[in-house]
């Protein structure tokens, strides 16, 4: 497949206690593109993206083997700085989860924690992040309002802006539109396409039409294995694996 590899996953296995969730997964995720991860419930979609910023480690009795390279660095090497990794690999969750603070403070929180900016520079980061998340025009006159005053769709874009504020390279999105109405979903989808110009975006979605609308590449997982990984257009027109065909045409799942 065309494009440079951003994330190189080699023989990845993840267990939660005795449950072998991801099985010998090898996958090269392309840079500056949107990759959709789809598959039936329990196939390992969320576990896969959480492996990319070592978020599975916060779950008790989880175990990971294999290698994930971002650039030259195997993120599972002992000397990896996990906080730096999570700055580089941002995450947006299913349900918008703003902090109980003002709109401004939600965005400023990350740069403050990472100690990268204050004062005027911080103002600039907040403005840039909100603009990149296509939220600036809607909130520029009320930055001190509570983030909870925003609509669901705006809150989700705020969470995306928060992820962008720490200048990540990769953005992981776990069902980012599942709690949103069609209009808010359309805005997030447009935003995802725009973000792909500067970031590598990986989105987990149950919604196949959404995967086909927003992604350049699609991974189909089943029972913890990669069944098919292809250019989205090709997978939705002519899947090469019978399981993929059956899943995307609704014969199972």
């Amino acid at each position: 497949m065309i494009g440079n590899t951003k994330i190189d996953i080699k023989n990845l296995n993840v267990w939660f206690e005795d449950n072998h969730v991801l099985k010998d997964m090898t996958l090269a995720i392309k840079a500056n593109a949107v990759t959709a991860v789809m598959g039936p419930s329990g196939c390992g979609k969320t576990t896969l993206i959480r492996a990319l910023n070592r978020m599975n480690e916060v779950i008790k009795d989880s175990r990971t083997s294999g290698e994930i390279y971002i650039g030259e660095q195997n993120i599972y090497d002992r000397d990896t700085n996990v906080y730096e990794l999570r700055r580089k690999v941002g995450m947006v969750f299913q349900k918008p989860n703003p902090l109980p603070k003002s709109i401004f403070e939600n965005i400023a929180f990350g740069p403050k924690v990472h100690n990268v900016a204050r004062g005027k520079r911080l103002d600039e980061i907040v403005k840039r992040s909100l603009k990149e998340a296509a939220l600036w025009d809607e909130v520029k006159d009320r930055l001190q309002d509570s983030a909870f005053d925003l609509s669901g769709g705006q809150q989700q874009r705020l969470c995306i802006a928060r992820a962008l504020a720490v200048e990540p390279e990769i953005i992981l999105m776990d069902e980012p539109c599942s709690a949103l109405d069609p209009a808010a979903t359309a805005k997030i989808e447009q935003l995802i396409r725009t973000l792909a110009q500067n970031y590598t975006v990986i989105i987990v979605t149950h919604n196949m039409q959404q995967a086909s609308r927003v992604s350049d590449f699609t991974v189909f997982l089943y029972l913890g294995r990669v069944i098919e990984y292809d250019i989205t257009k090709d997978m939705f027109e002519h899947p090469k694996n019978e399981l993929t065909e059956k899943y995307i045409t609704g014969e199972f799942g």
Partner: peptide, 9 residues
């Protein structure tokens, strides 16, 4: 139905 794969073909 937003068909895909063989349905779309």
């Amino acid at each position: 139905f937003q068909p895909v794969a063989s349905d779309l073909r």
